[in-house]
């Protein structure tokens, strides 16, 4: 699925406002992931177009969940194509969206902030979180391995995410004070 494949805009319709909300949320997700506003626009628009198309032939309960899933896949595909081992033919099409040095530096700083937050968590919370996020174990599997019920596992992961979210906001706030920064991250505008 190519991000640049379709250029059409979301057609106006009955659920226009609803789709606009979904597109805004998806864009915010994509911008958070890629830190590139143009790319985030493309991904959000494509995700909504694909979601519209998909729900015409499938029963969809949560359009938000569908659009986020599609956006995550588009971003995954985008990053994969940027890796040097990948197909050379695809590169010209994406010349516009190489990772900028700024983004790489920001990712490293964010990694350090995340690592710090992880190391400060209670050991059980951290272990449960890493089993889920890094090792891909299901909450049920983690519960069996650590003799916890599934609800308790979910709570540990939720609390870990809240910790990490707080650390990320502290990091972003300090990051925003840098004089070289051109675009203020919209994350602050909406939740700050």
């Amino acid at each position: 699925m190519s991000i640049c494949r379709r250029q059409g805009r979301v057609e106006p319709g009955r659920q226009n406002e609803h789709w606009a909300d979904i597109q805004a949320a998806t864009r915010r997700y994509a911008l958070n992931r890629t830190r590139q506003p143009d790319l985030a626009d493309d991904i959000a628009q494509q995700a909504v177009l694909d979601a519209i198309e998909y729900q015409q032939t499938h029963i969809v309960i949560s359009l938000h969940a569908l659009a986020f899933r599609i956006a995550a896949n588009l971003i995954k595909g985008h990053f994969r194509r940027l890796k040097p081992s990948d197909n050379i033919e695809l590169i010209p099409e994406l010349a516009c969206s190489q990772p900028l040095p700024d983004r790489v530096t920001e990712d490293r700083a964010e990694t350090r902030a995340m690592l710090k937050a992880l190391s400060q968590m209670p050991p059980l919370r951290r272990d449960v979180f890493l089993r889920r996020r890094l090792e891909g174990q299901s909450c049920e599997d983690i519960g069996r391995a650590l003799k916890l019920n599934t609800k308790a596992v979910e709570k540990h992961i939720t609390r870990a995410l809240v910790d990490l979210h707080a650390a990320r906001r502290v990091w972003r706030a300090s990051d925003d004070l840098r004089p070289t920064r051109k675009e203020k991250n919209p994350a602050e505008e909406m939740t700050g």
Partner: peptide, 20 residues
């Protein structure tokens, strides 16, 4: 919606994966 977007981006993002 905004918080969910931020939380998903945090959870899916490479910085957290690398830190983990």
């Amino acid at each position: 919606a905004a918080l969910y977007a931020d939380m998903c981006a945090l959870y899916d993002g490479e910085p957290l994966a690398e830190a983990a």
